[in-house]
Design a protein around this nucleic acid. Structure first.
Lengths: 335, 335
DNA sequence: ATTTATACTGCAATCGATTGAAATAATTAA
DNA sequence: TTAATTATTTCAATCGATTGCAGTATAAAT
């Protein structure tokens, strides 16, 4: 392993001390222009690059952010990572990515890893399994700023960045009603997630506004393609099948479209469907999906900006901030 | 900022030296069982965690891998990241992600960042703009192992992991021919990318096998949704329109499907289409897309495994390795 | 009682860079 | 010419952990 050029190498070659070299490189006023020039020239010649690790040790900073996320392959999350990386890049931070694969156990390991790696701050969207947050509390106890996004909790003193779940759901269901739907099913996320509750509540209130009674028989737990397709298949066969679907994400919505087609039901003739996310696939499926845009990229940017702000302030009177990202109904063909 | 517990804290509290504490913690035989137990107990009590940065400095290792990738949002790349993270996680490595956004300039910065962060090894898929590789050569000069994947070059002495582009393309075009296509268009990637060349060449040879003359008028540069849709629109209106399409990725293929539908052409009745990637969207569009599975997840795993192997060996007689990941034709409805 | 092992533990250097304080060199004033 | 300033540079400690070597204490052997 070839050794990297160090400040010491330069010092020896120039017959001076390491302190002088260090100061010359960072333009300290005490150093004479002649010395400064000589040092810089040799440094450039040798391709000297300061050893970040040594700097990290001294400053107790790494200029690195940790990112703990359920699964990278999901479009929404990859859009968020994109936004986060963008802001980090512009501010000369690096991002370490850890995926929990929706596993609580692995997430605990991730939190551990983030600690050992001594990142300056952490961005988290926790797994569906997570109901205990002590692994994140440990981060906070170590005074590492944590920002939660999308999957958030009020149990911890930490910033949150979320989509406007209530409003998005309200828009979606309102749209379905205006399209004439009377029996609207909701494919919901687990209710221990705030986003699950928020979207259900938006669904509920949109019905209320139009004086449609809320019927809990129309609420299903289905947030994956497979589970949604299966459930949709079942309930679309019933005589009292729903005429509208509002699903918690686009994959579920597209699964419903598939199920409807399997049963020779017309979308949007017989069944109207609205998703949530506005993933790439929403514009590719047939019919194209009406969905609520969550602006994942912007959400990622915002979360990262809040985290960087926290890193800067360092003051103790900490007041958690909750940022809600607007949503927008994107009307396409499915409803 | 609360200070982390250090070995020194434990040493002082126990009235012993830091060396003893250090040795006790790592079960050095010189330390008496009594001392060892006392140290470990207090360490656990205080929640001591070794400072990775100090360790890094001493060992000149970071147990961190750098990943430079064009765009995270692209399904294929996110699948690869997934695979990479999986292997890294299992081997107790962390992954720093940098995206080039298909920009050469940014990629040069990324290479710089990877160097300053002193990662132990780097995984790279370079941007479409990149024709000069000196920024990667600099990594190699610094004896940082580099593994290229998907977008690779022979100009550098580095390992490569790629899809079997030739074979995948051959399978795809062969399939189109067997479905009766006579005029098969190819939407190709830039030809300075090896994958662009490989797929074109597979296309070419499949035609050859069936004695269909190669016609360069049927080759188009189109590797994004937008450009593909536009070009497909134009050529599908011609009287001598192609009856088959083989595109360099799924987005292009789906764009062709959309264009065909816009013109009231039946897929696969009038136009047969085969993509390359097997993204999530391929199974969601209508008709579902026949495509070549690139096994991005496996590709990522393989790339990471090769890199970790390199990190272990450290020997100097370096022979670049080229790993080709099999592909598989996934036949669905579009062809 | 003295020598000789053996069992523990501590000292100090190291990794690479920074920085307050001390030292030296250069310049100016008296 | 000498003292007082000012300009430059070096010394040494620091960040947290590891480790070769030296040192001390205890026990066993002579």
């Amino acid at each position: 392993m070839k050794r990297q050029i160090t400040i010491k190498d330069i010092a020896i070659k120039l017959g001076m001390s390491t302190s002088t070299v260090s100061r010359a490189l960072r333009d300290h006023p005490d150093i004479s222009p002649k010395t400064r020039a000589a040092v810089k020239e040799l440094a450039a010649l040798l391709g000297y690059r300061p050893n970040r690790i040594a700097l990290n040790l001294r400053s107790n900073e790494t200029r690195t952010l940790g990112l703990i996320i359920p699964e990278i392959e999901h479009y929404f999350f990859s859009a968020i990572i994109n936004g986060i990386e963008e802001i980090a890049y512009k501010n000369d931070y690096s991002v370490m990515v850890f995926q929990s694969n929706e596993s609580y156990k692995r997430e605990v390991n991730n939190a551990q890893a983030v600690l050992t790696n001594r990142v300056d701050g952490v961005l988290v969207s926790f797994s569906k399994e997570t109901k205990d947050f002590s692994h994140f509390q440990k981060l906070i106890d170590n005074e590492i700023p944590v920002v939660f996004f999308d999957r958030v909790t009020d149990e911890l003193q930490a910033d949150q960045v979320v989509s406007d779940d209530y409003q998005g759901a309200f828009l979606a269901v309102n749209h379905l009603i205006e399209k004439g739907c009377k029996r609207i099913a909701h494919f919901a996320a687990p209710q221990h997630l705030a986003l699950g509750k928020g979207r259900l509540s938006g669904y509920h209130d949109a019905l209320l506004k139009h004086s449609i009674p809320f019927n809990s028989d129309l609420i299903f737990h289905a947030d994956t393609f497979e589970s949604s397709r299966k459930i949709a298949h079942t309930i679309l066969k019933r005589p009292d099948r729903p005429d509208g679907f509002f699903t918690v994400n686009d994959m579920s919505a597209i699964a419903v479209i598939k199920a409807a087609k399997d049963l020779n039901l017309k979308v949007p003739g017989d069944v109207h469907i609205v998703g949530f996310e506005n993933s790439r696939s929403a514009a590719l499926c047939e019919p194209e999906l009406t969905t609520v845009d969550q602006f994942g990229y912007d959400l990622g940017r915002e979360a990262c900006q809040i985290l960087l702000r926290r890193l800067k302030e360092k003051n103790s009177n900490f007041k958690p901030e909750k940022k809600v990202i607007r949503t927008k109904l994107v009307v396409r063909a499915s409803a």
